[in-house]
Amino acid sequence: MSGLPNSIRFPAKAGIQSVVTLALVLAAPLAIPATAQDRLPPAPYAYQQLKDPAQEARAKALMEELRCLVCQGQSIADSDAPLAGDMRHEVRSKIAAGESPAEIKTWLVARYGNWVSYDPPFDGATALLWLGPLLFLALGGWLAFGRFRRGANDDEGGEA
């Protein structure tokens, strides 16, 4: 178990997300955001778009794929947590400086691991995740198609 000091390490202004996801199944006792908030204004690119629409679109797509470190249940694109704002600033600044989304993602994964991306890579640990649905479909298809009536002359003899 993580100790208490750890679990309240960072203010969770994004508590509202937990409320919402909660609402989807049950209402339950909630942790109200319990720590203080910093008083700095958001980083310039946290709430400001890039001038070039093509660059902004690339940044937006990447931000939607990156997981917020503080709120954990949201992408940095839809979080009000300060660290998510700072990460948006980081992403937009790097895009503006000419880096490609793939480079930025690699840079972040080198620091936070694959956890930071909602798009898991294909590797040994995730092979089952990516191939599982295909296997399921193949097995199911094989079973289902084995039971269809073969040939037009086969009459309703399946009652046996």
């Binding site: 960072f10 980083a43 660290l83 990460m87 980081e90 936070y112």
Partner: peptide, 16 residues
């Protein structure tokens, strides 16, 4: 570190 940029470069996810 006004915009957490060094924090992010360190792979740090909170304080302290």
């Amino acid at each position: 570190d006004m915009q957490s940029s060094v924090q992010i470069a360190l792979g740090s996810s909170g304080v302290p």
